[in-house]
Design a protein around this nucleic acid. Sequence first.
DNA 1: GTCTATAATTCGATAGAC
DNA 2: GTCTATCGAATTATAGAC
Lengths: 199, 199
Amino acid sequence: MSTSVGKLTPMTVQRATPKSIRTRKAIETAARELFCTNGFERTTVRDIGARAGIDPSMIIRYFGSKDALFAQVAEPNLQLQDLDIIDMDGIGEALVRHFLAQWEGEQAGRGLPVLLRSAASNDDAAGRIRDIFQEQVFPVISRAGPPETAPDRAGLVATQLLGLALARYVLRIPPVVAMSSDVIVKTIGETVQRYATKG
Amino acid sequence: MSTSVGKLTPMTVQRATPKSIRTRKAIETAARELFCTNGFERTTVRDIGARAGIDPSMIIRYFGSKDALFAQVAEPNLQLQDLDIIDMDGIGEALVRHFLAQWEGEQAGRGLPVLLRSAASNDDAAGRIRDIFQEQVFPVISRAGPPETAPDRAGLVATQLLGLALARYVLRIPPVVAMSSDVIVKTIGETVQRYATKG
DNA sequence: GTCTATAATTCGATAGAC
DNA sequence: GTCTATCGAATTATAGAC
């Protein structure tokens, strides 16, 4: 949900007819897939248009620019609020399981793969990932240990979770790809648990 | 060492005069820095020429193409052979310390940062990272535990080491950047030790 | 060996007909 | 609302004078 249909782009005013809604959604879906697969730089407006089955010029008309489209599409919401009520003894495994589900699920983290794929090429993609961890991961980790070590603990958790995503979904290192979710949750969960609580 | 001066590019035959050697090295250095900072896509041949203080057309003349230059420059050698003789009880900390030195040292891993920066944009950068781990990391990890679990153990080590590099050098997540080398070696070394030996 | 000039593409973005 | 046609800028790569 929340593809923010009502959110007007700062350009040509445009009514939200049923058809325009479908077109906008088609563009966003195609953009997400291509940004995620090829990263920001290697994805062209023309490619997105072709995949969405609409004219490339419509993309500019709807979103104003390629950058604006990327910003619209790369808004990860890790939905970690679900974990707030979990007891801290299982925070490690819970975090890993949650992340795997986010990456492999239908919504695919709503943008995290897109960002990670483009973090090296898009100017602010790295900054957005930083924001995500500060705003969404840090608060959760904070409560799992002494407050004064919270930044370090959150940072360590970030290295392991991002490294897992990088190796499994971007670089596709064979044994990491082949590993079952259960093994990952158990093995890496133990690491995350230690990072989150003891640092 | 081993900037492979004698290695002829498959193009215009060219004598290796002292001047041409200097030019070639200047190009390689500038390319490494820019590829490492901005990734493959955002680095232009013109930028490299400007930084090297030579004409952009010389780059094509010397290396044939931008892709060929990238391939020439992105040949990481982790030099893990130094670790072969270390006792396995300290393999975790040794690996992390070695990696940090590689990333932060003069030679900067001779290409690993370049590759990681470009893994999302350059077609074969991800493949090269896979090769690096299979050829260089895997053999070292193999000896640290039961052979049948070697791939999984090496894969787990990869997630943590690459995640550390990603968070600290590419995404620059503040607490990870601020963390001292000693703390990183100790904390993450403990994780790598467990992955390398027990899986 | 080096540089000037430019060819040949490709991209993002726009104008305007319908 | 959608598409055709195209602009202007940027890129890699080449040709040829010096």
